[in-house]
């Protein structure tokens, strides 16, 4: 909300919180899925985030991150993906055998490429 708007009306226009599946960008999902096919297997049980050492202390949640990738909510991913410490404990727990560490690595790589217009 710009200062000008606020000054004039005392209120602004709320942005939509809706996930717009038709305009969101699933290039990251496609990039990750191609390079780490086990990405498709996540069924959101939360075993990874229950055991996650980083998520114990800060707002990092691999289960949520995977959903954001699937939905194409890339802006929310940028920060999230940097918070993983890649300890790999989630891989010990995952009942679907997702290579979670590589999912994080591939996501970070995809975002770097996206930001350099290489995706």
């Amino acid at each position: 909300m710009s200062v000008r708007q606020a000054n004039r009306f005392g209120f602004g226009i709320n942005q939509s919180r809706q996930i717009n599946y038709d305009t969101s960008d699933r290039k990251v999902r496609d990039y990750v899925t191609l390079r780490e096919p086990s990405f498709r297997l996540c069924f959101a049980c939360g075993g990874c985030s229950a055991t996650c050492t980083a998520g114990e202390h800060i707002s990092f949640n691999l289960r949520r991150m995977i959903t954001l990738i699937r939905r194409g909510e890339i802006d929310l991913l940028r920060d999230e993906v940097t918070r993983c410490m890649l300890c790999g404990k989630c891989m010990l727990v995952c009942p679907r055998g997702v290579n979670t560490r590589n999912v994080v690595a591939m996501t970070a790589e995809a975002i770097r490429k996206l930001d350099r217009n290489e995706l």
Binding site: G46, T51, C52, R63
Partner: peptide, 26 residues
């Protein structure tokens, strides 16, 4: 959420660890 582990504390109560996936927090 899928329970990731259990242990016991000094009162011999079990301590369960899980993600409350709907709250989005461990």
């Amino acid at each position: 959420g899928k329970v990731s582990e259990a242990s016991v504390n000094i009162s011999n109560r079990l301590v369960i660890k899980v993600e409350d996936t709907l709250a989005g927090r461990p």
